[in-house]
């Protein structure tokens, strides 16, 4: 009897687990990404369709507080400066619950963008709807979007490179490699990578 009760409890926990997953319809490679309109640190709203001249977008879910996001800040700026001219600007989105992490509030985003002179849009996903729709789970989490006709198609999901803490030891720059392959008409050799990051904190 005891075993059955335990088994039931375990099954119940498992059932609960499958319901509490925050990203039921996470984007896969080659899905069309839905557009959004989110408030930038300059107070203006930004949508994907505003990037009418871009070939694609390096969309990065990031935030202020996460040590990994901080470790990547300069590399994200470099990515934008290197690839905007080639048609791939960076768009950064912060989806974290500012109650759990006050450092990730809109005001603090504005401050960080100013301090670091972010050359790219840094958007506030206050409702967390966009992170959930894309299936972003952690920061930084990259979605490389390629414009095909009037749609933005997901071509790469994952990390920026293979070493978060030590930029000088990076061997593979996943995002750069994917863009280079797109630009030369090749298939993306590594369309999906994983990295440890700070989990996006969902609102209660």
């Amino acid at each position: 009897m005891k075993t059955i009760t335990c088994l039931l409890a375990t099954l119940f926990t498992l059932a609960l687990l499958s319901f509490t997953k925050p990203e039921p319809n996470a984007y896969q490679i080659n899905d069309a990404a839905r557009d959004f309109s989110l408030k930038n640190v300059d107070g203006k709203y930004v949508a994907l369709k505003d990037y009418s001249k871009a070939k694609g977008i390096i969309l990065i879910f990031t935030c202020n507080h996460c040590p990994f996001s901080k470790a990547y800040e300069d590399r994200i700026i470099t990515l934008h400066n290197k690839y905007e001219a080639k048609g791939f600007p960076v768009v950064a989105i912060n989806s974290n619950d500012a109650i759990a992490y006050p450092e990730d509030s809109y005001e603090n985003m504005q401050e960080r963008a100013k301090d670091k002179k972010f050359p790219f849009a840094y958007l506030h996903d206050e409702s967390q709807e966009i992170a959930k729709m894309y299936g972003a789970t952690k920061t930084p989490h990259v979605y490389l979007l390629l414009k095909v006709k009037d749609k933005f198609i997901v071509r790469y999901i994952g990390a920026i490179d293979d070493n978060s803490n030590e930029p000088e030891l990076v061997k593979q720059k996943y995002v750069e490699q994917a863009i280079t392959e797109i630009l030369s008409g090749q298939e993306i050799s590594l369309p999906f990578t994983k990295a440890i990051g700070c989990s996006i904190k969902w609102k209660k």
Binding site: K171, K194, A195, I196
Partner: peptide, 20 residues
């Protein structure tokens, strides 16, 4: 093991990489 992509899937393909 700083190259996370090389081993996360070896723990579990379902693991997205967030902690805890």
């Amino acid at each position: 093991e700083p190259d996370f992509n090389s081993w996360i899937d070896l723990v579990d393909k379902k693991w997205e990489g967030s902690i805890p």
